[in-house]
Design a protein around this nucleic acid. Structure first.
Length: 405
RNA sequence: CGGGCUGUAGUAUAGCGGUAGUAUACAUGCUUUGGGAGCAUGAGGUCUGGGUUCAACUCCCGGCAGCCCGACCA
């Protein structure tokens, strides 16, 4: 893509209405636009990152057997009354139609919508298990939105729900999903700082499990056991007499972290109020067992920003960068031919063809953070200059070498 | 939800009870081209409602908005 055609421009100054690093960088680099506190729009570059993350997650969810659907964001009050959560879910956005006086809910999560859907399809043990997932904006009326993309009132999320005939089946799927989550966080470039974390909130099992990425910008305190590689959330750490619940090791280190994923065994918490039952092999009626598995995609965008930047700007992991190559030229048209060739050969390249100084292009390239920068100028002759965003080393290379970067 | 801070061009900021300034971005022209280039010209602004005052962007009160701390966060 030609940068001159990108409608978004970078900002020279940090926005005054943002304090958190992820929001400052993403707004300045033109990845997102702040609509209001806790609500962001995704601009072309930001959306490309979102889509890359989404596709990594989608592949994993499909490999776990998940079928993608898209539920509605607008939900029925009656479904929320069925579970008793219309009254007591504290971050629930409720509103009333101006014309009809009918009450609605903006979905903060989708058990209330999905379970009635499955009631139309699940009757027999032969119908189980079922795995369903979606990507969708969620709405939560946070008392205090904060930290840029990390805690918003509207955010983009992957939510996966599993339905099982019994607890053993739920347990084994839960383990498979845990491994899938680890692969996802590795793929998006934060595997080394993301920990499988024991947390409270298990209504059905003793713990729920979070995936916590270590960062000073985080809002949770976790205790990491380097011996077995897991972490314990502060909220359950208090009850563990300072030992790792897994290996009983005593050497845990405390870190600030942000939750980037969360998996729950729900059991029959939602199948009971909705009457989601099936007949087993013996003709006995049983409650369906459920699990749910979330990843905050837009939060992940902010978290990765926090984890990967320097004082000049963003530094994208290759797998989720909006483009793989950023092509700069010294004089207008100087790299036009190379751009055509790269595009023709299938390279994903952002070509800075703007009529501005090379210095400004360097500054913007550092800010935007594409992993490989290519430059064509009077200094490069027949060669192409290549520099990685996370290295200082500059090399002169031939066209054939580009693919090896 | 409690507390604190802050609202001035697109963006970032200065200042003052009496004609609102700078940088940057933008428009036009010329000169430039390896780390946010130079000169000239031009256009563009005081969150909102009330109060005090001869006069309010400035002082006072309310509202709204943003950020931060706390509480909250299946």
């Amino acid at each position: 893509m030609k940068q001159s055609e990108l409608f978004v421009k970078t900002l020279r100054e940090d926005p005054k209405d943002e304090e958190s690093l992820n929001a400052k960088l993403l707004v300045r680099a033109g990845f997102v636009y702040k609509v209001m506190a806790g609500v962001y729009a995704f601009l072309p570059l930001g959306l490309r990152v979102i889509k890359k993350i989404e596709n990594i997650i989608r592949r994993e969810m499909e490999s776990c057997g998940g079928q993608e659907i898209l539920m509605s964001a607008l939900q029925a009050k009656s479904d929320w009354e069925t579970t008793g959560r219309f009254e007591n879910f504290d971050v629930l956005f409720r509103f009333t139609s101006y014309y009809s006086g009918i009450d609605y809910v903006l979905g903060p999560t989708h058990e209330e919508e999905l379970v009635p859907i499955l009631k139309q399809h699940i009757f027999s043990y032969r119908d189980l298990p079922v795995y369903v997932f979606q990507f969708q904006n969620k709405f939560r009326d946070e008392k205090r939105a904060k930290s840029g993309l990390l805690r918003g009132r509207e955010f983009y999320m992957k939510d996966f729900y599993s339905f099982h005939a019994d607890e053993a089946d739920l347990d084994s799927f839960y383990e498979a999903m845990t491994e899938s989550y680890k692969r996802i966080f590795n793929s998006v470039g934060i595997g080394d700082k993301t920990y499988y974390t024991l947390a409270s909130g298990g209504t059905f099992s003793k713990f729920s499990h979070e995936f916590q990425m270590v960062t000073p910008a985080g809002e949770d305190d976790i205790h990491i056991c380097d011996k077995c590689g897991i972490a314990v959330n502060e909220e359950v750490f208090k009850e563990t007499d300072s030992a790792c619940p897994v290996c009983r090791g005593k050497k845990l280190r405390s870190e600030k972290a942000i939750e980037v994923g969360n998996i729950f065994k729900l059991g029959d918490k939602y199948s009971v109020p909705f009457g989601l039952k099936f007949k087993n092999e013996n003709g006995e009626e049983k409650n369906v067992q459920m699990g749910c598995y979330g990843i905050g995609v837009s939060r992940l965008l902010g978290a990765i920003t926090e984890a990967s930047h320097d004082d000049r700007g963003l530094i994208w992991p290759e797998t989720i960068s909006p483009f793989k190559y950023h092509l700069l030229e010294q004089v207008p048209g100087g790299a036009a031919e190379l751009y055509e060739k790269l595009t023709h050969d299938g390279y994903e390249v952002l070509y800075d063809d703007r009529d501005v100084s090379l210095g400004e292009k360097f500054a913007d390239a550092d800010l935007i953070g594409i992993p490989v920068r290519l430059v064509v100028s009077s200094k490069t002759g027949e060669k192409i200059e290549a520099k990685k965003r996370n290295e200082e080393k500059i090399k002169l290379i031939n066209y054939e070498d580009i693919s090896k970067l």
